[in-house]
Simulated scan of single mutants.
Amino acid sequence: MPTDTPSTPTRRSIRTTRTDARRLRRRPVLVLTTLTTAFAIAASATAMAPAPATARAESTPAIALASFTKALPDSITAGVATSVPASKIQSTLDRADDAVAASKKVTADIATSKLDVGTDDTTVETDDLAQAVSDLENVSALPLLLDTRDATAAVEEAVAEVNEQTGALQGRLDAAIQKEKERLAEEKRKAEAAAKAAAEKKAAEEAAAAEASRSSSSGSSSSGSSSSAGTTKRAASGTSAGAAQATARSMLGNYGWGDDQFSCLVSLWNKESSWNYQAYNSSSGAYGIPQALPGSKMGSAGSDWKTNPATQIAWGLGYIDGRYGSPCGAWGHSQSNGWY
């Protein structure tokens, strides 16, 4: 790349150019201020000295500088007025103070937040504004002789530049604060979801363990029972939907549930699997009559959970008891949420 290609002017160089231009405009003002001060001192000294009678009679003021005496021209002493009202000058200076205060505040707020606002430079340059304010204060000290319009405009321009930088930093800080709020909210959501999943898993495991314990006790007590017990066992081993429902009805007594709960259970598992012990949801992986997710959960009720409806039903009833308290409780949840 050629080395003599002009580079893009930076914001600092632009401000320096503007500052130099304002300083050039101030030079005539400073010269006039010096001369005016000298004139005023000389005029005071002359006024204090006794004047001849003929001089007192003259109406045109005069200034004595050494041995040279010259009357002030009418263009200086007559018709001179403040170019910018004093009230506007004061309001401009007040806005300058507010701009500086706001710039310091946003810098302090960023430091306190300890957030990444996307830039290392979190300060606002106010040197130009300070110089412009000083110039305006100097010029406005002699409002009858000096034009305050340029100095006022310079302060207003510097205030606008400071406010622009302050606004940009404030926008970065607000964005960083919002991002941090969203991050904390997401972390809280994940923690709550993990806690809920852990609680559900624990409840299901406890329910399965309780059901397995009840099934074991029931099996031991029925080993020497009459032929009617054998008939019940054969019905429990049936694989049709009707046989599976009969098995479920026979198990309800273990939980103290009646026919009203059986009706809710029929509706619930009709919706889930149509009482098909081989029902499999390819999308979620749920399996069996109760649609356990995953199906291997039912292994806690028996190793034949894939093929025996009775094993699936035993696990399912234990899950319902531990999670919802009753089949009607599970059915109501399923109707409201689409799952149980």
Results as ranks from 00 to 15, higher is better:
34 T>N: 10
22 R>A: 11
243 A>L: 13
88 K>N: 07
147 D>W: 08
189 R>K: 14
105 K>I: 04
235 A>S: 09
197 A>I: 02
12 R>H: 11
244 A>I: 14
67 S>Y: 13
146 L>R: 11
231 T>G: 10
62 A>G: 11
70 K>C: 07
199 A>N: 14
41 I>P: 11
79 G>L: 03
134 S>C: 03
212 A>I: 01
18 R>V: 12
217 S>V: 10
269 W>V: 07
76 I>S: 04
205 E>Q: 02
25 R>S: 03
290 P>E: 11
286 A>L: 08
287 Y>N: 05
340 Y>W: 02
215 S>I: 10
27 R>E: 15
5 T>M: 07
67 S>M: 15
181 K>T: 07
181 K>M: 00
147 D>V: 05
71 A>F: 03
311 T>A: 02
283 S>V: 04
175 A>Y: 05
233 K>L: 05
30 L>W: 13
75 S>K: 07
148 T>Q: 12
8 T>Q: 10
294 P>G: 09
249 R>F: 15
220 S>Q: 15
246 A>Q: 13
333 H>N: 05
123 T>L: 06
170 Q>H: 04
303 S>E: 11
75 S>D: 14
49 A>C: 06
239 T>A: 06
28 P>W: 07
194 A>E: 15
157 E>H: 06
27 R>Q: 13
3 T>Q: 04
236 A>R: 13
70 K>D: 02
254 N>T: 12
201 K>M: 05
32 L>E: 10
82 T>A: 08
288 G>C: 05
65 L>Q: 06
271 K>G: 01
100 V>P: 04
339 W>M: 03
6 P>C: 09
181 K>D: 06
298 M>E: 04
93 L>A: 02
340 Y>H: 06
139 V>C: 03
135 D>P: 06
186 E>C: 00
85 P>K: 15
44 S>G: 01
187 E>T: 14
287 Y>A: 01
270 N>Y: 08
216 S>G: 15
118 G>S: 12
205 E>Y: 05
154 A>R: 03
217 S>R: 07
257 W>F: 14
139 V>T: 03
206 E>P: 12
201 K>A: 04
110 I>M: 00
48 M>I: 13
259 D>W: 09
42 A>R: 14
318 G>Y: 08
178 Q>G: 01
220 S>Y: 08
270 N>P: 02
196 K>I: 12
176 A>H: 03
243 A>Q: 14
232 T>G: 07
102 A>M: 10
128 D>Q: 14
178 Q>K: 05
207 A>P: 12
73 P>V: 06
29 V>C: 01
58 E>Q: 15
66 A>I: 04
167 G>Q: 04
62 A>C: 11
33 T>H: 00
230 G>D: 08
133 V>G: 01
39 F>Y: 10
267 S>W: 09
62 A>Q: 10
220 S>R: 14
120 D>I: 07
